[in-house]
């Protein structure tokens, strides 16, 4: 895939070229939206909105990392969705679990039901890891949006500070401070909720 050629074609209105880019990045974009939004449907909506917005404003792309540009678009879409949901709070029927363990942020709506033990992992360790991941996923949704996005981009997606700053269009110092606050809040939350982090 020659990314620059596809980008140039998409800039001239070639939807097929843009769809090739979509297929290449949609998993990563959706996962970012998923971690930020904490809800599969909301993440899907934000992802679709991000790709539509990216296509319409593709002329504004002046080179550089297309991935960072896409991540910036999806974080903006998530920001908008979070602001909208904050103004109009609603409860999704999907989040109303049928069992006491189906709390919001767990189960199928967060997509963590894919956690299975690997072959070289005993079931107890796998269960502990799955529990920790669930706790992290729920704790992320409790963070403020700006700290949540920094944490997702940096610690979940593995972007370095500079890439996060570029994706969020903010300074490096802001990224560092937001990330340290997000980590501290999440760490304290996990320490109070579980003993997962205090183990060996």
């Amino acid at each position: 895939m020659d990314e620059p050629v596809l980008i140039r074609s998409a800039q001239h209105g070639d939807v097929d070229a843009f769809n090739t880019l979509v297929l290449a990045y949609q998993a990563q974009v959706f996962n970012v939206a998923m971690r930020i939004m904490g809800d599969r449907d909301a993440a899907a909506d934000a992802t679709q909105e991000a790709f539509i917005s990216a296509y319409k404003s593709l002329r504004a792309f002046r080179g550089g990392s297309f991935k960072s540009w896409l991540l910036r678009t999806v974080t903006n879409a998530c920001y908008d969705a979070l602001r909208y949901s904050k103004r109009r709070p609603s409860t999704s029927l999907d989040s109303l679990g049928t069992t006491p363990n189906d709390a919001p942020g767990e189960g199928t709506t967060t997509g963590f039901d894919e956690f299975v033990a690997s072959d070289d992992e005993n079931p107890a360790t796998a269960a502990e890891r799955a529990e920790l991941r669930r706790a992290i996923a729920k704790g992320v949704t409790l963070l403020p949006p700006d700290q949540r996005i920094v944490f997702v981009l940096s610690d979940v997606q593995g972007l370095n500070y500079e890439e996060v700053a570029s994706a969020m269009q903010t300074s490096l110092g802001t990224v560092k401070s937001r990330l340290s606050r997000a980590r501290a809040k999440l760490r304290d939350y996990l320490l109070t909720q579980t003993e997962l982090l205090s183990g060996p």
Partner: peptide, 23 residues
């Protein structure tokens, strides 16, 4: 604890996309 948190966050598996997002 922070080290553990970062390691666990980095090992979060990719969530399968519910559908394609082609335009």
């Amino acid at each position: 604890a922070t080290r553990k948190l970062i390691g666990a966050a980095a090992s979060l598996p990719l969530v399968q996309i519910p559908r394609n997002f082609i335009l």
